[in-house]
């Protein structure tokens, strides 16, 4: 290979080598896209994703905030969300919230994402 061809290859190889440890250390956390309420560590100020089901009867808007409880069946955490609310947000549904666990045990979310099921049906309930 000519010297002209070797330099870019070298650059790519060096970049890949530099990225590998980064990818490996990030992978453990990265593959866990969200934690459930039981897995949430005590308030450490870190920005994490929390996933679970919205407990029916707990969702109520309060000014700019949206309050609801999130459960994984074992543990339930109160969530206070500020920001965009997906219009299909519903109680009893799976959601993923990004935010920080406060000292008061409430999860302050700034990004709310709604999971939807793999089922599709018409409004009259037929499928």
């Amino acid at each position: 290979m000519s010297p002209g061809g070797r330099l870019p290859l070298l650059l790519v190889a060096v970049t890949a080598l530099a990225m590998t440890p980064l990818a490996c250390t990030g992978l453990g956390e990265g593959l866990t896209y969200y934690r459930t309420p039981s897995e949430l560590r005590p308030a450490g100020g870190e920005h994490v994703r929390l996933g679970g089901l919205v407990v029916p009867g707990t969702a109520h808007p309060d000014g700019r905030e949206l309050h609801f409880s999130l459960t994984d069946g074992t543990k339930t955490i109160d969530v206070v969300h500020t920001g965009y609310r997906p219009p299909v947000f519903r109680e009893g549904q799976g959601v993923v919230a990004e935010g920080v666990l406060g000292a008061d045990g409430r999860f302050r979310s700034d990004r709310l994402m709604v999971k939807h099921s793999e089922e599709y049906r018409a409004a009259d309930g037929s499928r």
């Binding site: 896209y33 994402m113 709604v114």
Partner: peptide
């Protein structure tokens, strides 16, 4: 965006 609430997120499928 309309259904999840976000255009993009680094979830394993999207990544």
């Amino acid at each position: 965006r309309p259904v999840w609430g976000v255009w993009w997120t680094w979830d394993p499928r999207l990544t």
